[in-house]
């Protein structure tokens, strides 16, 4: 990759962040707050002490994973907006398995098992979306949105019918061995599941650059016709790309269960799948950049709560959308439309 391209991408990300800052300041003025004071408070509440930093890491952890979940299919020209449903399926599956394990199961056994279950759960949803796109020509965005709604309802039904304990909407607690310990940053939520996120980013980087699957995805994303001419099975590539994306979103679901709640709860991780779109686009889909991008959005999310007495906390949602919008304008065309045969 040329230095020129790097500079272009960096400039595009900077433009997106500047636009978000400008839009945010305008909205703050609209709400009668002083932008300078809000931005200063936001910085102080996130980077000011160990607790703030820990909370930023805690919020960035699932965003790395949902960002990767968007980035991998995007390589193949597919837009994975199904992170929400993939997370729900994975979180429920890994919470149930995590609670069913024998009480004394050591972490070296329990953690790999529950993480694998989460990846399979999320991956299955992604694969189903991919199959409908690849073999039935149904657009992955619509399918994923419908699946998000359906899986949310099904999880609630399964929970109410069999899985929730007591009167609440929470499943049984997972065994001790299937939990990620806290990092110990002054009572912040940051846990060792951040290592899973970093490992996933590294794995995706390797997969995209060095593996045959990654090569196929890039070819398909570059142009399905050319990929087909080069002998690549486009339908299969689309399916595997969305399955891989689903597995990554599944790990984000696992983070909430294993590193935070220690059970599945109704509404767990809601919105993080959509936020992954913003994370991935700001990073232009590059795994290393996704880690940084997740930290930026993690800081925004945490800081938004910190400035809630100055401006409505919904401000952060608008800023995230502005970043995606501006990134879309600088990125050009990255997705493809049409059925499996085209």
């Amino acid at each position: 990759m040329s230095a020129r391209r790097w500079a272009d991408e960096l400039a595009a990300a900077a433009v997106a962040l500047l636009a978000a800052t400008a839009a945010g300041s305008l909205l703050m003025i609209l709400a009668g707050a002083s932008p300078l004071e809000v931005w200063r408070t936001l910085a102080a509440r996130t980077l000011g002490d160990a607790y703030g930093v820990g909370q930023v890491i805690f919020r960035a952890t699932p965003l790395v994973l949902t960002g990767l979940a968007v980035a991998v299919p995007l390589r193949a020209g597919l837009f994975n907006i199904g992170g929400e449903g993939q997370m729900i399926a994975a979180a429920l599956a890994c919470a149930v398995v995590g609670a069913a394990l024998p009480a004394g199961t050591p972490a070296v056994v329990a953690l790999p098992v529950v993480l694998a279950v989460a990846m399979v759960g999320g991956g299955a949803v992604g694969a189903a979306t991919g199959a409908l796109r690849a073999y039935r020509g149904a657009h992955e965005v619509i399918v994923a949105i419908l699946l998000n709604a359906i899986l949310g309802g099904v999880a609630l039904w399964l929970g109410n019918e069999w899985l929730f304990v007591g009167d609440g909407t929470r499943t049984a607690t997972v065994v001790e061995g299937a939990r990620f310990g806290e990092l110990g940053l002054r009572g912040s939520g940051a846990s060792w599941s951040v290592l899973v996120a970093l490992a996933a980013a590294a794995a995706v980087g390797w997969l995209e650059l060095r593996s045959t699957a990654g090569h196929a995805w890039r070819m398909i994303g570059g142009g399905p016709d050319a990929a087909r001419a080069a002998g690549i099975d486009v339908a299969r590539g689309r399916l595997t790309a969305l399955a891989a994306g689903g597995a990554l979103a599944g790990l984000a679901g696992a983070h909430f269960v294993l590193g935070h709640k220690h059970a599945f709860e109704e509404g767990l991780g809601r919105g993080q799948g959509f936020l992954g779109v913003a994370v991935a686009l700001l990073a232009q889909g590059r795994p290393a950049a996704i880690v940084l991008s997740a930290l930026v959005f993690g800081a925004l999310a945490q800081g938004g709560l910190g400035v809630a007495e100055l401006v409505p906390k919904e401000l952060v949602d608008v800023l995230q959308a502005v970043v995606v919008l501006v990134a879309a304008a600088t990125l050009g065309r990255v997705t493809t439309i049409g059925g499996g045969r085209r």
Partner: peptide, 29 residues
Amino acid sequence: WAIRLGADQIVTGVALNLAAYGLTRYLLQ
């Protein structure tokens, strides 16, 4: 975005949806 800037139309649409969710809630507040 679609006609002048040549942006990706799918990404643009999703971004506008996210913006609308945030903006309407913000303005409600």
